[in-house]
Amino acid sequence: MNIFRLAGDMTHLFSVLVLLLKIHTIKSCAGISLKTQELYAIVFTTRYLDLFTTYISLYNTIMKLIFLGSSISIVWYMRHHKVVRRSYDKDQDTFRHYLLMLPCLLLALLINEKFTFLEVMWAFSLYLEAVAILPQLVLLQRTRNIDNLTGQYVLLLGAYRALYVLNWIYRYFTEENYVHWITWVSGIVQTLLYADFFYYYFQSWKNNVKLQLPA
């Protein structure tokens, strides 16, 4: 494992921890899109089906279980916890996220590394992850005041994606036969979606003002 991959996994882990911290200690999910969290729960459930068929490493298994467990529990908290669910910006979080799923499924049926159930699900999870952040970005844009934890959550997620791109470049040059077009293209699309947010985040950080996205 190279440093970019490890740093990418760690920023991903931290993003989840930041979100759980917000939910557990502040008992608030204000500014967090349930739509995006539901998509992530579906992304990890469909991608990690190979937990049952392939063993890669203890690290890999533990991380998969963490991402599965945390994404499902975040959805549960936002939907059912009697305090947390009251802070959910239901009226602002109106992105019709289920409409993203059908095109991703069709694309996965057409473009996959192998036409088997696990491979189609794997490709589906990659396509869906690429667009899963959209409801969150729309919600951020609608929310006037973005609190620090929410801003940091999205920043960490974006950093995780950018580090994975560096990891692919590194692996391409250091490993034989390491070519994965599906992962790369969907990963790059996903990273580009964060570019706008990054821009405004660093502007607000540089000028030391509260993060606000233009309407």
Partner: peptide
């Protein structure tokens, strides 16, 4: 022997 695939990533 098949090389490990992208599936070793998360």
């Amino acid at each position: 022997q098949e090389k490990p695939r992208s599936h070793d990533e998360l």
